[in-house]
Design a protein around this nucleic acid. Sequence first.
RNA 1: CGGGGCGUGGCUCAGUCCGGUAGAGCGCUGCGUUCGGGUCGCAGAGGUCCCCGGUUCGAAUCCGGGCGCCCCGACCA
Length: 487
Amino acid sequence: MGEEKKLTPRGEDFAAWYNEVVQRAELADYSPVRGSMVIRPWGYGIWENMQRALDSMFKETGHENAYFPLLIPMSFIEREKEHVEGFAPELAIVTQAGGKELEEPFAIRPTSETIIYAMYAKWVQSYRDLPILMNQWANVVRWEMRTRLFLRTAEFLWQEGHTAHATAEEAEEETLLILGIYRRFMDEWIAMPPITGLKTDSEKFAGAVRSYACEALMQDNRALQAGTSHFLGQNFARQFDLKFQSVEGREEYAWNTSWGVSTRLVGGMVMTHGDDAGVVVPPRLAPVQVVVVPILRGDDTQSRVLAKAHEVCARLKELGVRAKVDAREHLSPGNKFYEWERKGVPFRVEIGPKDLEKGQLAIARRVVPEGAKRKEFVAEAEAIASFSARLEDLQSELREAAAARREANTLRGVGSLGELQEALDSGAGFVLTGWSGDPAVEERVKELTRATARVVPGPEFRSETPPQRCVSGDGPSKMEVAWARAY
RNA sequence: CGGGGCGUGGCUCAGUCCGGUAGAGCGCUGCGUUCGGGUCGCAGAGGUCCCCGGUUCGAAUCCGGGCGCCCCGACCA
């Protein structure tokens, strides 16, 4: 057993740990193109489970999926001023095709607002055609200078929802509905409870009137923007002539929203739950929830042990548990244990000749609570029946632990730039202060601390006693802000 | 775009200072032995030493140029 089999501990170098764990757990690997990555089956399986859950939440709230093309006329991107400025530095542009120079270059979509609202304009005439509630699952390309697996890559997978409404109120309501869905999804599926709220003007989406975001706190106490929901007002409708005739017969511009989450969530999951042994995948997202490892000896017990392993696996599947037998003969059981732990499978069942005799199974858990043992031996029938509860329990334990960690690392009532700096330097996560709303204060904080305004927290995340003064010491506080160093 | 590091079997790297037959560990293949927390043994396969040029009898090593990747800071889901 060489040293290289061990991962760098989180406490030693969190970034190194993250890189190793993502690759060694076979979530993803680097592709030959700088800044882009291959999502491997284990990572993609987790993403598929995220997709399934989100997709049904979108459908339950009346959204439909569609697909818009990858290539967007350059002139479309250029139409909304702030939008172009926001995305210009990271655009990949196709200038040649079919062996010759194109008359008009195409942008590879960094996001699809422009093409989508141009199409909506064709489809909408009357208020009766509204609302349009569409989502697409797609890849997008943003040429980033510095990349990290899942967290920031040149190409990534996401969903982008785009809606059009007859009134501002309805669009705003949609924006918040989605924010709530994101929050619930992160809470209940990733067990990664974010704080939610409004982005400051300097942090909002290029082209939006208002942006809302979910911000999660990673184990290194840096914040991760995990999902955004934008109220676009009529900015795009005006540029793409997305008009409708109202009940009163007036011609009006539609009101739009857009919202998205990406494969970045996989990175968030890793940095929320992972430990020094590897990734920990919350049960609801785990492609394999229970791995069954037969203890194979090269003797006459072998075939009976293997048969039992398959039988147990089949019975777990009948109960709706995603189970898998690892019957590989060339690896010792210990090897398999380490491998599945690194990948974060929630539970392992071991079946050996002794268990066969005693009619029991060995159950090992990926996450061992304080004072508990990793392995226990349980009578077979009872063991099998116990898994749906075990999985649900683990799911909520992970959620609780993450919520407790977030709260423990959130500092409220900080009243001055000096205190803010001190808090962040000594490793605080979210630090909440008052703010006058002056962008110059954001600049100052950034220079001083490298932290940014992550979010103006929604009501449920605000401090009980609202801050009175701006953190700059200059004037009264108009709103509370959660600051953090961010990914 | 600044700073740092690195390009040598699949992976991690030694060898480079001081030029002389290309190495180790892990992984891989075969056989045997093991198998309840990274078994052990034997035999094997596998290399344009990032690329181009130069110096030299001889270059992974020296010189010139180029390319690529990773990490840390300014911009970003």
